[in-house]
């Protein structure tokens, strides 16, 4: 079906890819936080929280969000305890 998708323009165009890549890179540029540093921050967050409770490390997500030239660091840290429901 890929030929049909291409014919109908269902695949992302290179212009759309350019826009998404730019938005990502500019978010990091403006915050002066390279993407690699975000990975380190993620590891540090996991380490701190894991000292107190079990963390679902595979699903931890850290990213930057931008609103009107203001940056926000968003971290989602799923906990293993919560997933099991009631304990004991």
């Amino acid at each position: 079906m890929s030929w049909l998708n291409r014919l109908l323009g269902k695949n992302e165009t290179s212009g759309q890819i350019a826009k998404q890549r730019l938005q990502m890179v500019l978010t990091h540029d403006r915050a002066d936080l390279p993407p690699g540093l975000l990975e380190q921050i993620k590891d540090d967050i996991i380490e701190v929280i894991a000292r107190h409770t079990a963390v679902d490390t595979v699903n931890v997500a850290v990213h930057l969000e931008q609103n009107a030239r203001e940056n926000r660091l968003i971290a989602e840290v799923p906990l293993l305890a919560a997933r099991r429901g009631t304990r004991g």
Partner: peptide, 13 residues
């Protein structure tokens, strides 16, 4: 044909 950023895209960014 979607192979260049439009002026609106550039302004959005």
């Amino acid at each position: 044909r979607g192979d260049m950023l439009s002026v609106d895209d550039v302004l959005d960014i």
